[in-house]
Amino acid sequence: MERFLRTGGLPPEGVQLLGRWTSADLGSGFDLLETDDAAKLTEFAYQWSDLMELEIMPVLEDAELAAVLGRVAKK
């Protein structure tokens, strides 16, 4: 908590923090981040990796998913 209070837990430049949610028992949380630079996500994860296990899960918006499926789905 000391590091979070000192730094604000903000991601590096090039990564936008869209939202953050923390469980009531402070045992877990979820950050919604946006970037085109996966290396920046790795940088952010590394800053906290000595304190917690992190999982990075890339996601697509529905329109992006539909475009991908339109290109690759078997017809």
Rank of each mutant, 00 (worst) to 15 (best):
D36R: 12
T7W: 03
S49V: 02
K75H: 11
E43H: 08
D37M: 03
F44E: 06
L54R: 07
E2C: 02
W21Y: 13
F30K: 01
Y46I: 15
T42Y: 09
V72M: 01
V72Q: 06
G14W: 10
F4E: 09
K74S: 07
L69F: 14
E43G: 13
E34G: 04
Q47S: 15
R6Y: 02
F4G: 05
G14F: 07
E2H: 11
P12Y: 06
K75I: 07
L54N: 05
E61S: 03
L65D: 00
W48R: 10
K40C: 06
M52H: 04
K75Y: 05
Q47M: 14
V59Q: 03
S28Q: 15
D37H: 10
R6M: 02
A38E: 09
G70V: 00
D36F: 02
D62S: 14
M1L: 10
A67T: 13
E13Y: 00
E2L: 11
T22D: 11
A67Y: 00
L5M: 09
L65V: 09
L10F: 07
L41Y: 03
E55W: 01
S49I: 00
R3I: 03
T7H: 02
E61Q: 13
D25F: 05
E43R: 12
V15L: 01
A38P: 12
S23K: 07
P11I: 01
V15F: 04
E13R: 09
E43A: 15
I56V: 11
E2Q: 12
F30W: 12
L51Q: 13
Y46M: 14
S23F: 07
T42V: 14
D31W: 10
G27L: 11
F4H: 09
L26K: 11
L65R: 15
R20M: 12
P12W: 03
F44S: 08
G29F: 04
E13M: 01
G14E: 06
I56P: 00
A73T: 11
L33G: 02
D50A: 13
D25T: 03
